[in-house]
């Protein structure tokens, strides 16, 4: 459930920002925003957990009636924001790797900038952009602290984003905080759950890796 929200934020915002930075922004703007994005990538995830629980949730409770203190909506939004710097910077790199001769070919036909961006640059960087989103998604899925803090640890199967529910990673944290004794069922179960998580993210990563390599071969 939070996964849909993540993509709902990261895809449009990430794509538009990457296009703007790679095609429209002046060099001075790009040279400022790119390092800023790299810095933002370095913000520890527990800080994003703080944002989710203590900043975003109280703020949204003013607008969304019935939003609980612990919910799925806010972690979804915060995770989307969290992976944005990564997604933008990787997909912008992919767009800039599209040879300039292709852009000139477009301009020589009388295209406007947005036409060059949407008809030449995006198709040219497509696998690189997709890889950026898949790898970003994989980060969000594997992310623990935001969810452990703000989504709660209640094993609640719900489609209502205003409520809380446990996720794989939050479950592991909850179990670990309780000081799991060696060899108990709880101990075994966090390993089973961890393995599942590993498999899910591995699948994402392998697809992302393959796409990125394919993109590199194209130019």
């Amino acid at each position: 459930m939070p996964d849909n929200l993540i993509m709902f934020i990261a895809v449009p915002f990430g794509l538009i920002m990457a296009i703007y930075l790679s095609e429209y922004a002046r060099p001075a703007v790009r040279e400022t925003v790119k390092p800023a994005l790299e810095m933002l990538e370095a913000v520890p995830t527990v800080v994003y957990g703080f944002f989710a629980l203590l900043v975003m949730t109280p703020f949204l409770q003013n607008f969304i009636p019935g939003l609980k203190g612990i919910n799925l909506l806010v972690p979804g939004i915060i995770l989307g924001i969290m992976i944005l710097p990564y997604v933008v910077s990787v997909s912008e790199d992919a767009m800039r790797a599209v040879p300039n001769s292709l852009r000139e070919g477009g301009y020589a036909l009388g295209m406007a900038k947005w036409q060059v961006a949407t008809r030449i640059v995006i198709p040219g960087a497509f696998s690189g952009i997709t890889a950026a989103f898949i790898l970003g998604m994989s980060r969000a899925v594997g992310e623990t602290m935001v969810l452990a803090v703000a989504a709660g640890q209640n094993p609640n199967l719900t489609w209502d984003p205003r409520e809380g529910a446990a996720t794989i990673t939050a479950y592991i944290v909850q179990m670990s905080l309780g000081d799991v004794a060696y060899g108990t069922t709880a101990y075994e179960s966090i390993f089973a759950v961890g393995l599942l998580l590993f498999v899910i993210t591995l699948a994402f990563n392998v697809i992302g890796f393959y796409l990125r390599r394919k993109f590199r071969e194209a130019y």
Partner: peptide, 19 residues
Amino acid sequence: INVSNLAGVPSIVYGLLAL
């Protein structure tokens, strides 16, 4: 392939490994 995929493994999985 392994090294670049390891970079994408969720950190909590490393925690479990260490545990």
